[in-house]
């Protein structure tokens, strides 16, 4: 009984409405902060490429096939293209 006398309607609204709304508001505003993941500029065709060269290769053992001494053969196949 004494509690209801000490907390008026304004304080009740402040605690149960304004404070939760403020918490949700802060969380909503944080979604507008640009993340670090988007700091990497997206590549568009024609942009300059300033990154250092990268070269990846697997390390599975190759299946040696019909040309055991193919290391002396320097003929290459393949294709090329531009955009």
């Amino acid at each position: 009984m004494g509690y209801f006398l000490r907390v008026n309607i304004l304080e009740t609204i402040l605690i149960y409405v304004v404070i939760p709304a403020a918490i949700f508001g802060v969380a909503a505003l944080l979604t507008l902060v640009p993340g670090r993941a988007k700091s990497r500029p997206k590549y568009h065709s024609g942009d300059s490429w300033d990154y250092p060269a990268h070269w990846w290769s697997g390390d599975n053992p190759v299946a040696v096939g019909s040309i055991p001494d193919a290391s002396n053969d320097v003929t290459f196949g393949g294709a090329r293209g531009t955009w």
Partner: peptide, 20 residues
Amino acid sequence: PGQKVVEVVTGAEAAQRVSD
């Protein structure tokens, strides 16, 4: 990407599996 060029190179044995 800077030169807008793609090259595929196949070695002698690989060229028999992946045709031009």
